[in-house]
């Protein structure tokens, strides 16, 4: 199960080794050429000798995570987040620490021991520690060093009706879409980029776009979805089950009209459900890619993801599969000359 393997792999920003290795093994049979860049992004070329516009599909492979920064005398581990983590979701979650995947828990003072005023406030980062069962600093140091990263220990499972839960659907769904797509053959050059360091300021994608310099680019993402009870209709961002979400505006990009309309038309003529991403906050790698060099025709398509950046996220498998279908339909339309730069 591809999504299970992708989401259960570790890939903190800047330390994407495990996820990169996993993706590499998946894509190498289909690649003309695979290589990494100086930051660690994985670039896979296919059909480079074919005529037609060079299309880059791009998905970031890193995830929000934690870093151990200090070991206390009592063996507890002090940590800081890598990327945007809401401290309120951290308490009482299990984590895997370091390459050895040492099990740990994030604990906080029990409610019985808290004063009334303490109980009303969120528990801050400075009050939380990772406990791996070490009884002293010396014991902890045998298993963990400062600089080790930690990710949520969340099992991928299909639940409910065509839904899946797991960690890091942001953005392993994008990675999954690219891997499913590379197995198909296209009559144009397609470059698949798995970028690093998106979660800490879109840092990996700029150098990749500069290097690949494609004629057009499509960014695949997992994006905010809050179609839940109490959310106002115009505050949901996306709706689960309504298909891939096409970006219109976010904090890093105003969508190119031509690309936007082409994506919508492609979905309509292939009878694939799709929706607009109806929120202006957040940003993705498109922000760097569309401004690279002389400017690159860029679009972004996302799988709606509930509880994004939290330990347990949720997607609709129908949305995921429809995103894969939309990306194929998009590439087929470019093959036929349906989108010119």
């Amino acid at each position: 199960m591809l999504l299970k393997r992708l989401t259960e792999a570790m890939g903190p920003s800047g330390f994407e080794d495990e996820i990169r290795r996993l993706i590499y093994e998946e894509v190498r049979p289909y690649a003309d050429r695979v290589y990494t860049d100086p930051l660690g992004s994985l670039i896979v070329e296919t059909g480079e000798s074919k005529p037609g516009p060079r299309v880059m599909l791009s998905a970031h492979m890193d995830e929000v995570s934690l870093m151990i920064v200090h070991i206390e005398e009592n063996g507890l581990l002090k940590f800081r987040p890598i990327g945007g983590v809401d401290p309120r979701i951290l308490v009482s979650k299990p984590v895997s620490v370091g390459k050895q995947k040492i099990a740990g828990v994030i604990g906080a003072k029990a409610i019985h021991l808290q004063t009334q005023s303490e109980r009303e406030k969120p528990i801050g980062l400075d009050q939380m520690y990772i406990d791996i069962g070490a009884r002293s600093k010396e014991e902890a140091e045998k298993a963990v060093s400062p600089g080790d990263t930690a990710v949520f220990m969340t099992e991928y499972q299909e639940i409910g009706e065509r839904r899946a839960k797991g960690k890091s659907f942001d953005n392993r769904v994008g990675c999954g879409v690219l891997i499913e797509t590379i197995r198909k053959t296209f009559d144009i050059p397609v470059i698949y980029a798995f970028t690093v360091q998106e979660e800490i300021g879109l840092r990996g994608a700029g150098p990749v776009a500069y290097r690949v310099n494609p004629d057009m680019a499509l960014i695949l993402e997992g994006t905010v979805c809050f179609d839940v009870i109490d959310a106002p209709e115009h505050g949901t961002g996306t709706v689960m089950g309504k298909g891939p979400a096409i970006s219109v505006i976010d904090s890093s990009t105003i969508a190119n009209r031509k690309m936007l309309e082409h994506l919508v038309q492609t979905a309509e003529s292939a009878k694939i459900p799709c929706q607009y991403r109806r929120v202006s906050g957040g940003g993705n790698d498109a922000g760097r890619v569309h401004l690279a060099r002389n400017g690159i025709l860029t679009g972004a398509v996302s799988v709606p993801t509930r509880y994004i950046h939290a330990p347990s996220q949720m997607i609709s498998l129908d949305d995921y599969e429809n995103t894969i279908r939309l990306v194929e339909a998009f590439l087929r339309s470019v093959e036929k000359g349906g989108l010119q730069v």
């Binding site: 860049d37 100086p38 930051l39 870093m67 890598i82 990327g83 300021g201 840092r203 700029g206 500069y210």
Partner: peptide, 20 residues
């Protein structure tokens, strides 16, 4: 130990051109 980019010239150097 850093969890994101540094606030030094290294911030810009790393993402220059194809990445340094």
């Amino acid at each position: 130990w850093l969890q994101g980019p540094t606030a030094t010239d290294g911030f810009a150097m790393q993402i220059s051109r194809e990445g340094i």
